[in-house]
Design a protein around this nucleic acid. Structure first.
Length: 132
RNA sequence: CGAGCCGGACGGGCGGCCGCGUCGGGCGGGGUGACCCGCCCGCCGAGGAAAGUCCGGACUCCACAGGGCAGGGUGGUGGGUAACGCCCACCCGGGGUGACCCGCGGGACAGUGCCACAGAGAACAGACCGCCCGUCCGGACGGUCACCGACCGUCCGGACGGGCAAGGGUGAAACGGUGGUGUAAGAGACCACCAGCGUGCCGGGUGACCGGUGCGGCUCGGUAAACCCCACCCGGAGCAAGGCCAGACAGGGAGCGUUCGAGGGCUGCCCGCCCGAGCUCCCGGGUAGGCCGCUGGAGGGCGCCGGUGACGGCGUCCCGAGAUGGAUGGCCGCCGCCGAUCCCGGGUGACCGGGACCGGCACAGGAUCCGGCUUACAGUCCGGCUCGUCCG
């Protein structure tokens, strides 16, 4: 995600799951009439898109860049974990600057499984645990 | 060997797997086209401070970048440089035994302001204690008169009048210092030397200034990161500069004005100059996308020459980030350095050598590009120099 409008819509209109180091927002299309899936071409639907928010409260530039790179690494395979057209925002809390790699990964994956499990289209809850 | 001063360099290394960004090549796709997208392969991919954004430039636009006032900056001298508030050398002042270090280092007889507390007195200053002289009072001792008492002399204490500023004490600072003459006691009151101020001459230096010598009045505080004065410098904005393209919409109303000039620009004002037919406000609507600028430059390494040096000249070789929600992340192996624990060997011992395992390895991330400054920083290496001790 690149535009600030998309970030605002995802953070304000989406579901939220908070952990110590990160907060995850996910806006899934179809939940309301205003959030129709964006279309590219006549039939294809855009895949889920992800954005990151790392504020100055996390730390100086070196720390912020490292946190953002780690979050990007974690979220590499998340596009097929959310329905097409979803807007997903992964935001870092201030403790993320001092967290280790495993702490950050576990928090982010925990938040993701919480949101993506409840949004499985078939309603099945056992098949959503695809972590690892 | 110990303590220390100055300068310079580095700031983890090698390798494997997955992933990311630019560029080049290949294949495929979209589009009339400019161009864009996907996959594969290859090369490359953060710093000495990339930081703070404090100075100086290059570059871009403002027509030229004019004069005065205001404003800002700099402040020993000479040089280096594209330029600087930077660097080098020297001068002066201060500190250190020394190598060296520190200095926002013009002007306080152009003017104005301010100097707290303490202290007697703080800027044409002042007399608390004190020193000296005189008068008076009291006391002690001695002398004279045969005694009480009186008078005279010496000493002590007090009051009053006057002289003094040497000594004590206060302070960051007390209107020169030392010695002498002088005096009732004293004082640049006078004398010698010294310090300081002003001024003349001689010598050295491009210069700041230094050395020597004569004269003068005798001493004349500090603060200009207080106003101010003097000299010199400074046009404004900044890569979101600026340029090209694509795309979209929808206009309506009011006011001022078209050479008798609205409105702009040149800095804040004035003068002077230039552009000039649109400009301002209200209501309503649309867009905020792409490309260029964009990285080879006052660039770096080495050698020679000039210069005390900063630096300059010549020759030769090398150049391998250009993102735009902003590319460096994840996992692993070996080595290096530091710290704790344990084991083995040597030694009476401080300790030395070897091994195992655990933990740690700083400060910090480009955004137009350079030259500086400042600040942060685990640790390592190199060179030069000083002082002390011991040995020869």
């Amino acid at each position: 995600m690149r535009s600030s409008g998309e970030f605002t819509r995802a953070v304000r209109g989406g579901r939220r799951a908070g952990r110590r180091t990160v907060v995850l927002h996910a806006l899934v299309p179809g939940s309301s009439a205003a959030d129709r899936p964006e279309t590219i071409g006549p039939t294809a639907v855009a895949p889920a898109r992800i954005g990151f928010v790392v504020s100055r409260a996390v730390g100086p530039a070196v720390v912020r860049n490292r946190v953002k790179r780690r979050l990007r690494h974690i979220a590499r395979d998340w596009t097929d974990q959310f329905p097409a057209g979803s807007l997903v925002v992964l935001r870092a809390n201030p403790p993320a600057g001092g967290a280790t790699w495993t702490e950050l990964r576990d928090d982010a994956e925990s938040a993701r499984s919480r949101l993506s499990r409840q949004r499985t289209p078939t309603g099945g809850r056992s098949s959503a645990r695809t972590r690892g």
